[in-house]
Amino acid sequence: MKIILTQEVSGLGTPGDIVEVKGGYGRNYLIPQGYAIPWTRGAEKQIDVIKRARAAREVRDLDHANEIRSSLENLSVQLPVRAGQGGRLYGSVTPAEVTAAVKRAGGPDLDKRRLELPGQIKSTGDYKVQIRLHPEVAAAFTLRVVAEK
């Protein structure tokens, strides 16, 4: 099935790309979530509009992404969570909790979908978290998960 991506999908492409995917993946996930539209000759004409908008955003966002990266790398992010004995958490840390902790620590608003956690975080400790700010810029920061008092 041919589709046109309207948003960035990791491992698949960026907005405006025409990609071939399995039918079920396209019909049941990408199109209903708004990540893609079905490919048609009429929809293909919209690609230029999507790509021009993306190009304008990227040029403006590249410098901004580098600024955000430098501020994130100098940031100390601490996330208090409920934990039992031995530092085991009740549940696990979600990307939404991480973005909220970054905001509380004085960092910028981040998109939780661009966050790359190192697997499931189910115990207290320090974790290296990465975020894709731009196709060419990624930032890494240390997340300290501590038990609530």
Rank of each mutant, 00 (worst) to 15 (best):
P118S: 14
G107D: 01
H134M: 03
G107T: 06
A43S: 11
D63W: 00
S92T: 10
V59M: 01
E20S: 15
E58A: 01
Q120A: 15
N74M: 01
A105R: 13
G87R: 14
L62S: 03
E67Q: 12
V9D: 02
P15F: 10
V145K: 05
L72C: 08
D126A: 15
V19M: 03
K45I: 05
K112W: 11
A36C: 05
D17W: 02
Q78R: 15
P108S: 10
E58S: 06
V9R: 09
E67S: 12
V93N: 07
E148I: 13
G42R: 08
V49M: 09
D61H: 02
I50S: 01
R114L: 15
D126H: 12
R82Y: 08
R104L: 13
A36R: 03
I18G: 05
Q130W: 07
V9Y: 02
H64Q: 15
A65M: 03
D48G: 08
G34I: 02
L110A: 06
E8N: 12
V93D: 04
R41P: 04
Q85L: 08
L110S: 12
G11W: 07
Q120D: 15
E136Q: 13
A139P: 04
P32L: 09
G26I: 01
A147P: 04
I4E: 01
A96F: 13
D48S: 10
G125P: 08
A101C: 12
K128H: 06
N66W: 10
D126F: 01
V21C: 12
I121W: 00
V137R: 05
S123L: 01
V93S: 00
E148Q: 13
V146C: 13
A105H: 11
L110W: 04
A96M: 11
E73W: 02
G23I: 08
R104P: 11
T14L: 14
P32Y: 07
V19Q: 00
V59P: 00
R69D: 01
A53R: 11
S10F: 15
I50L: 07
W39V: 02
Q130H: 11
G13I: 00
G11T: 02
T6M: 07
Y29K: 02
R52S: 09
N74F: 00
V129W: 00
Q33P: 00
A53M: 06
A100I: 04
Q85D: 11
A53C: 02
V9I: 11
L89E: 03
G107V: 02
E116V: 13
D61I: 02
V21Q: 06
V102Y: 05
D61G: 01
V102Q: 01
K122I: 05
E73A: 04
G34A: 11
K103C: 04
K128M: 02
G106I: 11
L115H: 12
Y25Q: 01
T6W: 00
A147E: 13
V137I: 09
R57C: 08
E20L: 10
V21P: 08
